[in-house]
Design a protein around this nucleic acid. Sequence first.
DNA 1: CTGAATCCCATAGGATACTG
DNA 2: CAGTATCCTATGGGATTCAG
Lengths: 130, 130
Amino acid sequence: MTDLPKQRVDTPTNFPPFEQPCPIRDVLDRIGDQWSLLLLESLAPGRKRFSELGREIGDISKQMLSRTLKQLEQDGFITRTVYPEVPPRVEYELTDLGQSFRGPMQALVQWADANHRVIVEARNRYRGLD
Amino acid sequence: MTDLPKQRVDTPTNFPPFEQPCPIRDVLDRIGDQWSLLLLESLAPGRKRFSELGREIGDISKQMLSRTLKQLEQDGFITRTVYPEVPPRVEYELTDLGQSFRGPMQALVQWADANHRVIVEARNRYRGLD
DNA sequence: CTGAATCCCATAGGATACTG
DNA sequence: CAGTATCCTATGGGATTCAG
């Protein structure tokens, strides 16, 4: 029984609460994990099957691959199609929602790619003046 | 002594490794945490001080506020200015790098805002067919 | 092959108390 | 006010094993 993660309405903490649970945070909490973005990227070219995704990502465990795909399916980013064959085959594919996400995702990816160098330099500079 | 997080080159796992440590992942690992994006958003309008940010975010602990700001500073997203006054005042402000990040960030935020409803519906639909 | 279940550890992140 | 240090819990996520 996978009880879905509750919405963080619990402990207020030492700063006075301010905004209601916002959509941004809700979305980011889901696709902000270690693998979601990578998987959506991998699925961008087209439908792929389980192990194919595993190979492409490289260092993801089967467990996390499975979990993350399920999350993405639940949230409506991808579809999961099972082919009742002898060695089972399952294919994943972006939904319209998933496709529509490619825009902002690409913006992010491109920015990261373009600015990675600057960031690394900043880190090194920071370390330098310890 | 805050030893910086190492680069995940350790255990290969059960899938054969595939890509070298990529910039995307490196960047996302940093701004993909629970608070970075929120803070960058908060700082978008202009420079703000520590407690001001804390109040705006609402449910962030002082500790995480401090840590996250330091991370963002290290990576060159923001600057930290200390005013040697009686009650100390510290202000944070986006750097050029931080500013340049607003583009992709806004894309993401707007998408999240626009599609949150659809996602929530997808989740509920999924729960329905248990 | 595609997962689910179990075990286990490392880390994120909150609470609190203390400092300059 | 703006942090830092300490402690502690919850969660993320890998490894391994089991199942259809």
